[in-house]
Design a protein around this nucleic acid. Structure first.
Lengths: 175, 175
DNA sequence: GAAACTGTTCAATATTTTTTGAACAGTCGT
DNA sequence: ACGACTGTTCAAAAAATATTGAACAGTTTC
């Protein structure tokens, strides 16, 4: 069964894409790691997006794992998240079996993906919370009632402010 | 030396302010804990602010410790942070030795405090990062240069968008 | 000035979150 | 159908973050 083709490896495709990052890439990755922190996302997600953002060519999961030196698990999860928010696209590369990814670079798309995915659900669940709170407030002992009812009212205006802000934000960021 | 006044405790001032929270307070505290999570602040800070927000009267550090059942350290640090962002005010209560605190409830003040304290510094440090990145980009090998320079340019427009957004945000939220 | 009290700091601890890596399920080519 | 390959999942490990509590410094009262 020892055929001539048996050991022919698929791996070393033309460009090895050197493991490790160039100074430019490092700097870009760091910048996005910082950005990720600001919005409360794990470092690995910042790394992945940063690498894809600065990369000239689409990268495969394995490329990312090697260059960033992170585990396949992290990379897979990170890409999953980034795809789910629309920050990264899989571009079908017909020459290769595996998927390759590129960064979505439109600020509007990025922001709206993030807001829809991360903020909107919280606002919605906040609605339920507020309703419950309101019910407790109106039932409060007379001495406090006025005060707490007024506070809850204020929370309600906060909430609707925030809800109204979302679309405005997206508009402002979108070109 | 056993004087009559020796054991007279200062503690049990008229209203014990029952330790533990009423259902209303609990609900309010929970709501703010969730909010804190959204903006990446520790739970204890959400608890403290939530309690002060719903409270009819200003509370002392010890009140907070007891009612919330958190350590004095946490409460002290949390209050320090909340004061530094202007989310909480010390109102001088002449009847008591210790400071009492109340929540600042103006959305504008809260938002601008938070943005100034948490976001602005990041934007500023981002400036330096961007400059460094740009230097690396223009020095990149010819094959990549155009691409990476263009990406960095885009980052610069993101940055200025964000910088321009801050005052707008404050305006929008402020009444 | 000592005792009682208030509030801060910080090293140790506990908790939460992220990352890893190995097992697995699915695909493709032969 | 088998073997090589790609990507996902998830329990365990590691890392990051928050909380505690005890020591301390500063006040006030007597």
């Amino acid at each position: 069964m020892a055929l001539a083709t048996e050991i022919a490896p698929r791996r070393p495709s033309s460009v090895p894409l050197l493991a490790g990052l160039s100074p430019l890439e490092s700097e870009a990755v760091d910048l996005f790691v910082g950005l990720a922190q600001v919005v409360g996302l794990p470092k690995s997600i910042g790394q992945i997006y940063g690498l894809l953002y600065i990369s000239t060519v689409p990268l495969s999961l394995d490329d990312i794992v090697e260059r960033l030196d992170i585990s396949k698990g992290s990379a897979s999860q990170g890409l999953k998240f980034l795809r789910s928010t629309g920050a990264v696209r899989a571009c079908d590369d017909h020459d290769s079996r595996c998927d390759h990814y590129e960064a979505e670079t439109g600020l509007r798309a990025l922001a709206s993906g993030f807001l829809k995915e991360q903020i909107e659900p919280r606002l919605e669940s906040g609605e339920g919370r507020l309703a419950r709170l309101k019910r407790l407030a109106v039932a409060a002992p007379a001495a406090e009632r006025d005060h707490v009812v007024q506070r809850v009212k204020q929370l309600e205006t906060w909430h609707s402010r925030a809800a109204g802000l979302l679309p405005l934000l997206i508009r402002f960021l979108g070109k």
